[in-house]
C-alpha cells in the first residue's frame, strides 16, 4: 500500500467516524435532556432552597440519624475530647427534667457545638438539633448538607425575624427534639458575651418546655473567631438548673408585670436565662457558694464584661476566655 492510499483510507475512516458521530448527535430531548419550558407559559421564579429554605428533614430520617449517631460517638466525640479535654459539670441537674428541652449556651468558638453535643447525656445527644446561622451554614448546598448531616444543624435566621425558621424549631420541639441555641447569634469577637436574643425564651414560652442554661469555657483558647489554628486547651461545660417561665402567682415580681399576660414575657425570661449562665460563669472562676451569694445579691459579674474601653475589656478577660 502506498503512503498516498494509506492516507486516503485514514482520511475516509475519520470522515466516517465524524459522520456517524454527527448523525447520532441528533438533538437530545426529554427525558435525556432537561425539558424546555413552553414559550407560551411564564416561567415561575425558582423557589429558594438554600439558607432558611434549606430542607433538613432528610437529616432526621432514621438512616441519617443512625449514621450521625455513629459519626458523633465514634469520631467527633473522641476528637473533641482530645482537643478540648472537657470537664463536664452539673449533669446531675438534668436528672429529672422532662424532655424536650432547649439548651442555651454562650458562644465563643466553632468548637462549642461539637463539644456541647458530645457532652450531652446519652438520652439527649442523638435527639438534639442545633440552631445555626442560616446565612453562614446554609449558603451553599454542599456545606449545608455536610453540616446538617454531621451535627444535625437546622437553619435559623439571625438578622431578622423569620416565621419559617421559628416554625421549624417549634415543630421539632413538638416532635420531641431538643434544641441547642446560642442566643448571642454569633461567636464572641472579643471573649465577652454579646447581647442575648429572645428566640430561646420565645420558643420556651410558646411550646412550654424548660430551658437548660449551659456555660462553656475555654473553647476560645482552642479556636477563636477569625483564628485558623487549633490549640489544645482544657475546657469546661457546666449545665445549670433547668428553668421554666414563671407564672405571675408564683413569681415574686408579679406586681411589676404589666398588662394581661399570664406568664413572664420573653424579654424578662431571656434576662433570667442570661443571669443563670452568668452565675455558672461566675462559679467557674470563683466557687459555687460565693457565686450564689453574688447571684442572690444581684452582683454577679455580667457575661458581657465591663463597659469600658476595648483594651480594658480584654485585660479583664479570665484566662479561659482569652485567645491563644
Amino acid at each position: 500500500m502506498t503512503s498516498h492510499s494509506r492516507l486516503k483510507s485514514i482520511f475516509q475512516f475519520s470522515n466516517l467516524i465524524e459522520r456517524s458521530l454527527l448523525s447520532s448527535r441528533s438533538e437530545p430531548v426529554l427525558p435525556w435532556r432537561k425539558p424546555n419550558w413552553p414559550s407560551s407559559l411564564a416561567k415561575p421564579t425558582p423557589k429558594p432552597t438554600l439558607g432558611v429554605y434549606y430542607d433538613t428533614s432528610w437529616t432526621r430520617t432514621k438512616p441519617s440519624r443512625i449514621a450521625r449517631a455513629a459519626l458523633v460517638d465514634w469520631l467527633i466525640k473522641p476528637l473533641s475530647s482530645f482537643v478540648a479535654m472537657p470537664t463536664v459539670e452539673g449533669l446531675d441537674r438534668l436528672g429529672n427534667v422532662s424532655t424536650p428541652v432547649i439548651f442555651v449556651a454562650n458562644h465563643s468558638s466553632h468548637l462549642d457545638t461539637p463539644l456541647l453535643l458530645c457532652s450531652l447525656p446519652q438520652q439527649f445527644r442523638h435527639k438534639t438539633v442545633v440552631a445555626a446561622a442560616a446565612d453562614y451554614f446554609f449558603d451553599k448546598r454542599f456545606k449545608a448538607a455536610v453540616w446538617s448531616f454531621a451535627l444535625g444543624i437546622i437553619p435559623m435566621e439571625r438578622t431578622k425575624v423569620n416565621r419559617r425558621s421559628a416554625a421549624l424549631a417549634e415543630e421539632l420541639l413538638r416532635q420531641g427534639w431538643n434544641i441547642i441555641i446560642f442566643p448571642e447569634g454569633t461567636r464572641s469577637p472579643d471573649g465577652w458575651a454579646q447581647r442575648f436574643k429572645g428566640g430561646a425564651a420565645y420558643l420556651s414560652l410558646k411550646v412550654g418546655i424548660p430551658v437548660v442554661p449551659v456555660y462553656i469555657s475555654g473553647t476560645r483558647r482552642i479556636l477563636a473567631k477569625d483564628s485558623t489554628k487549633l490549640h489544645r486547651y482544657p475546657t469546661k461545660v457546666v449545665f445549670g438548673h433547668p428553668i421554666v417561665p414563671t407564672t405571675p402567682a408564683l413569681s415574686s415580681g408579679a406586681g411589676n408585670l404589666k398588662g394581661k399576660k399570664d406568664t413572664e414575657d420573653a424579654v424578662h425570661f431571656e434576662k433570667r436565662i442570661e443571669q443563670e449562665i452568668a452565675l455558672l460563669a461566675d462559679a467557674c472562676t470563683s466557687n459555687w457558694w460565693e457565686a450564689l451569694k453574688r447571684h442572690k445579691s444581684g452582683t454577679t459579674p455580667s457575661l458581657g464584661g465591663p463597659k469600658t474601653s476595648p483594651w480594658r475589656r480584654s485585660w479583664e478577660l479570665p484566662p479561659s476566655s482569652r485567645s491563644s
Binding site: V29, L30, P35, N36, W37, P38, S39, S40, L41
Partner: peptide, 9 residues
C-alpha cells in the same frame, strides 16, 4: 397549552 417547537415531547 399550545405546543410550539419549544414544547417538550
Amino acid at each position: 397549552l399550545e405546543a410550539d417547537r419549544n414544547t417538550p415531547p
